[in-house]
């Protein structure tokens, strides 16, 4: 029996971790006598941002993490962040294979799949949004919680940014240290930020880029049966988790509105400007990093496969 050790980036109460643990159970059930995955824990076992390097170096075999956590080492991950395709489309058109290949060459890991896809981000605010002449929200003077993933985009929107951990946002919103934050369409209720955030701006931007990566040397030491089983199950869960999250999105939207959150939409033209600004920031960051690290040939390929240009 192949034994595989695994850790996950997020605490257990988040839906993304639940997906991962359910997927591991699925692998273990179907792989009885072939492969057994032992989950060693979450961020308490290995720090959230140390997990990618730990799987690369072989401290653990498998990690469930957003790609952005190691985006500086594998710039191509931004193609998922600013994608206009679903994980299933990326797998069908060869995007996933290219993603796996750059992970192997740059980071000594296999990229097995893009889980919980189809979830996007919104900016939420405690105050009513203001708009510029072009109809795009104007965040001048708004104190916005920052995060490396969308830092470039927020700068482009003129916001005053404050970096803090997700765990500190609740008190920061309560005290008015920040008045706005970005988060996915789902999960605001789990974090209880809806107590303070009363407005949500549409459209959505970016995608969650949560994936499963596997140490390359450990992968090669697995039996072919184990490899096939793990890879197949992860690919199945791309679809399964995508569908489940679509339901969550509808459910959370209903609940948020029931609790009094207002969903504000920009005009179609303004939305176009806004989303393009976001995507340009991500692709620009990827280009900048690739120029330094080499591998520019992937830029156009990924743009075609993930952005459908």
């Amino acid at each position: 029996v192949d034994r595989v050790s695994a850790v996950h980036a997020f605490p257990e109460f988040l839906v993304y971790t639940k997906t991962f643990l359910a997927m591991v159970d699925d692998i273990n059930a179907r792989g009885e006598g072939i492969v057994e995955i032992q989950v060693r824990g979450g961020p308490e076992a290995i720090g959230m941002f140390q997990q990618p390097q730990a799987v690369r170096d072989g401290v653990v075999d498998m990690v469930h993490t957003p790609g952005s956590f190691y985006g500086a080492s594998v710039p191509e991950i931004d193609a998922m962040v600013a994608a206009r395709v679903t994980p299933m489309e990326a797998r069908a058109n060869g995007g996933a294979a290219l993603m796996d290949q750059v992970h192997q060459s740059r980071f000594n890991v296999k990229h097995l799949g893009w889980i919980d896809g189809g979830v996007q981000f919104h900016i939420y605010s405690t105050q009513e949004f203001k708009f510029g002449d072009d109809g795009v929200i104007d965040l001048t003077g708004v104190k916005l919680r920052d995060n490396p993933i969308y830092h470039a985009f927020f700068e482009a929107l003129n916001a005053t940014t404050a970096s803090m951990k997700a765990t500190e946002v609740y008190s920061a919103l309560e005290k008015g240290v920040v008045d706005a934050a970005a988060w996915t369409s789902i999960g605001i209720l789990d974090l209880k930020w809806d107590k303070f955030l009363k407005y949500r701006i549409d459209p959505k931007f970016y995608n969650t880029d949560i994936g499963v990566i596997f140490n390359k040397d450990s992968w090669e030491s697995l039996s072919p049966e184990s490899q096939k089983l793990i890879q197949d199950v992860v690919a199945e869960w791309e679809q399964k988790s995508y569908d489940a999250r679509q339901q969550d999105i509808a459910k959370d939207a209903e609940e948020l509105q029931k609790r009094g959150m207002q969903f504000v939409s920009m005009t179609p033209e303004a939305s176009e400007i806004y989303v393009t600004k976001a995507n340009d920031a991500a692709w620009g960051r990827m280009k900048g990093r690739l120029e330094e690290m080499g591998g520019m040939e992937n830029y156009d390929k990924l743009r075609k496969l993930y952005y459908k240009e």
């Binding site: 941002f49 952005s68 956590f69 985006g71 500086a72 080492s73 920052d146 490396p148 970096s163 690290m293």
Partner: peptide, 15 residues
Amino acid sequence: LKAYRFGDTDMRSLD
């Protein structure tokens, strides 16, 4: 040395 060879970064407001 390993971090130098791989070009590892600590990502916060800057890399």
